[in-house]
């Protein structure tokens, strides 16, 4: 009961800080804050079609965030999610391109799902391997590999996979509708993709909070030096965690390719990897808040799209709010830790 009250005060404090900060900023550029917030809300939840767009952002963001939770459990900062998502998109594109002339699209969609996850996992394992064998900190390895992944996509779009005749930033040749991620008629968001995401959420709850494997991951993260005394190899668990992290990011990349853009584009990751890091930090590395925060962030992203038209405000306001939320959250959590420390 006391903990619930504490969490509630935390949330109210964070929201209060964010509103204060954003309002101040809007007031400084002479835009009415209330109207801006109303527009954000209307832009994301105003109609069913807008809400489906929010869900389309929520899916990859949630997948990336849950992936990150696995890595964080072992104490790893998998900054490379962005690149892993891109590689997942590349893997999916590879499979779907092979399926363009075939008669069994579902087979190739299945293959795309697998190859996306596998390529994402391999890209993540590469960062993990660099850390474990080469002593490269995973943040630097991940960040470096993000740039490499970006280069790889551009090379593919302008090289081997360029559209017949023209190569352009608009991406590869779009896939025929049979190779789009399956949906239901009239749905702008695939219920199957939602179901997949919900399954990942539930499964992760079980793995991270209930299973032996999850306990072992956490033990490795909290004290890698003691882990061997319990028969655990920190390296193996770290590699396993980062691979799962990459696989989920790769899955997100696959859905971007087959479900949203229906082709590979340079900005295929839409920055959801980095945004996922913010989601997890705002959730204070706990599982339960992640889907809700991801929804909040997705709504901000979608809601801000119409700010330029309605109020001549840049849509980056959503990023400002997201950043401010994380800063406020870290501040509130930090203050609480300080107070707890002082009470000792």
């Amino acid at each position: 009961m006391k903990r619930i009250r504490q969490h509630l005060t935390d949330i109210l404090l964070i929201l209060g800080l964010v509103l204060l900060f954003t309002s101040l900023l809007l007031w400084m550029v002479k835009a009415p804050p209330l109207e801006a917030f109303q527009n954000l809300l209307a832009g994301s939840f105003g109609s069913w079609s807008r809400f489906t767009r929010v869900l389309n952002v929520w899916i990859p963001l949630t997948l990336c965030s849950f992936g990150l939770l696995y890595a964080f459990r072992t104490g790893l900062w998998n900054i490379g999610v962005e690149g892993q998502m891109v590689l997942g998109a590349v893997g999916a594109t590879w499979a779907l391109r092979m399926g363009m002339e075939s008669g069994s699209p579902l087979l190739y969609l299945g293959l795309a799902l697998v190859s996306g996850a596998v390529l994402g996992a391999l890209w993540a394992l590469f960062a993990g391997w660099l850390k474990i064998r080469g002593g490269v900190h995973e943040i630097f390895a991940g960040l470096g590999l993000n740039f490499v992944a970006m280069g790889l996509v551009l090379w593919l779009i302008f090289g081997p996979w360029k559209r017949a005749g023209i190569a352009s930033m608009s991406g590869t040749q779009p896939f025929p509708i049979e190779l789009w991620f399956p949906s239901l008629p009239g749905w702008r968001v695939s219920p199957f993709a939602i179901a997949l995401t919900v399954a990942v959420i539930l499964f992760s709850f079980w793995v991270l909070n209930r299973s032996r494997f999850g306990l072992n991951l956490e033990a490795v993260g909290r004290n890698p030096r003691a882990a061997p005394l319990y028969g655990l190899s920190p390296r193996q668990y770290m590699l396993a965690a980062i691979a799962i992290s990459g696989a989920l990011a790769g899955l997100a990349g696959m859905l971007q390719v087959s479900g949203i853009y229906h082709r590979l584009i340079p900005a295929i990751s839409s920055g959801y990897g980095y945004l996922g890091l913010l989601v997890v930090m705002l959730a204070n590395f706990r599982l339960l808040p992640v889907p809700f925060i991801a929804l909040f962030f997705a709504a901000l992203n979608v809601g801000s799209i119409q700010l330029p038209m309605m109020m001549q405000l840049d849509s980056s306001l959503s990023g400002v709010i997201q950043g401010a939320s994380v800063m406020s959250a870290l501040l509130v959590f930090g203050l609480r830790r300080l107070r707890a420390g002082r009470a000792e």
Binding site: R212, L215, A219, R222, N223, R225, A226, A227, L229, Y230
Partner: peptide, 21 residues
């Protein structure tokens, strides 16, 4: 530093060391 897992409870340690649910 090396023997126990800070943040884990007594019960967690038994789950970990003995492989118990």
């Amino acid at each position: 530093e090396e023997g126990l897992i800070p943040g884990f409870t007594i019960q967690d340690h038994f789950a970990l060391a003995r492989g118990l649910p």
